[in-house]
Computed example of a mutant assay.
Amino acid sequence: MDNEIHTVLGASGAIGFAIIKALQNKNLSIRAVSKHPMQGVKWVYANLMDTVLTQKAIQGSGYVYLCVGLPYDSAIWASQWPVIMKNVINACEKSNAVLIFFDNVYMYDPYYLPSSFDENTPQYTLTKKGITRKQISDMIMDAIRQEKIKAVIGRSADFYGPFAKNSPFYISFLERMLLDKNPYFLGSPDKKHTYSYTLDNGRALVLLALDSSTYGEVWHLPTRKAITIEQIIEIFNGILKKNYKIKIIFPIERKLLSLFSKTIKEASEMNYQFEHDYIMVSDKFKNHFPDFHITPYELGIKEMIKSFCKKNTNR
């Protein structure tokens, strides 16, 4: 199946970019699917809420990467994600394509999260976004059990990297630094948190796709050790040659600001992830792919900064 088409749904996003780069490095046949034209790669328009357009976009594919990024809005997630997942699963079944789903970790039970967590951590959540993520992940696992499709799920920690506007390293952070303003943070500054680099995610997802022994399972995508936001700002300051200070937004302030900022309101329900150590274990992947090189934070953050500085220069 190595010569068949690798179709990337959500190709214009940061993870789509990373997957395409990984596929290009392996000289594999690529079909980029998004709502807006893309240059340098074969591109197909599709609205994944539409059954027919989804089937046309996937038809003839050997592998389908689902890495769509919907607006960070719990109501949009609840209404659109199940429809998109159903359409993609059905289209993969018709085309006999392997589905590779780029997932997050919102479905895990917060009770278990102060200690490190892996793929076997119990799933239970009362957050709106977490409920939706569990629902669509379960849809894939049900389709696998029913032998409708072959699929693999790659779960990422909060990610950062080139063009990653939905990254916690960008929102209220790098975006403010590029305006020469101090960043702010909606969590505890001394707590450790795990992050994934987008280009590592892209390479990892392609490896999972090409290794049929990984199918039918959930894999935590590879990460380096957890790091505090204070350590992160040191890296940013070192690269930017600045001395920015972090403004910590405490819970009382957060509640007030959420009345005026939808971004903060939407982020608030997930903020438990930043109020204690949040350490995602990816040993399963590392043991299966022992030669995989994980990008150091310093290099990944440097590439992220470069991508946004270049983007701003081109405007």
Rank of each mutant, 00 (worst) to 15 (best):
E4M: 12
H6M: 09
T7E: 07
G16I: 05
A18P: 07
A18Y: 07
I19G: 05
I20T: 05
A22C: 06
A22Q: 05
K26Y: 03
R31S: 02
A32R: 02
K35F: 00
H36S: 06
P37H: 01
Q39D: 10
Q39E: 08
Y45M: 09
L48N: 02
L48V: 01
T51E: 04
I58L: 02
S61F: 00
G62W: 01
L66H: 00
C67L: 02
V68N: 01
G69A: 09
L70Y: 02
W77I: 13
W77A: 14
S79Y: 05
W81M: 15
K86N: 13
N90K: 11
A91S: 08
E93H: 12
S95N: 09
V105H: 11
Y106K: 15
Y111R: 14
Y111P: 11
Y112F: 11
S116W: 08
P122C: 14
Q123G: 15
Y124V: 13
Y124I: 14
K128M: 15
K129N: 09
I136V: 12
M139G: 11
S156E: 08
S156A: 13
P162H: 01
P162S: 08
S167V: 06
L179D: 04
L179E: 04
D180M: 11
K181D: 09
N182A: 08
P183I: 06
L186R: 08
D190L: 07
K192A: 15
K192Q: 13
Y195K: 11
S196W: 02
T198F: 00
N201Y: 00
N201R: 02
L207M: 07
L210V: 08
D211Y: 02
S213I: 04
T214P: 12
Y215K: 13
H220C: 11
H220Y: 06
K225S: 13
T228A: 03
I229V: 05
Q231K: 13
Q231W: 00
N237V: 08
K241M: 10
I246N: 10
I246C: 09
I248G: 08
E253N: 14
R254L: 14
L256N: 15
S258L: 08
S258A: 13
T263S: 14
I264Y: 06
E266I: 11
A267P: 07
E269T: 09
F274D: 15
H276Y: 03
Y278F: 15
S282W: 06
D283Y: 09
N287S: 15
F289E: 12
D291K: 09
I294R: 06
Y297A: 10
L299Y: 01
L299C: 02
L299W: 00
G300F: 02
K306A: 10
N312C: 08
R315A: 07
R315I: 00
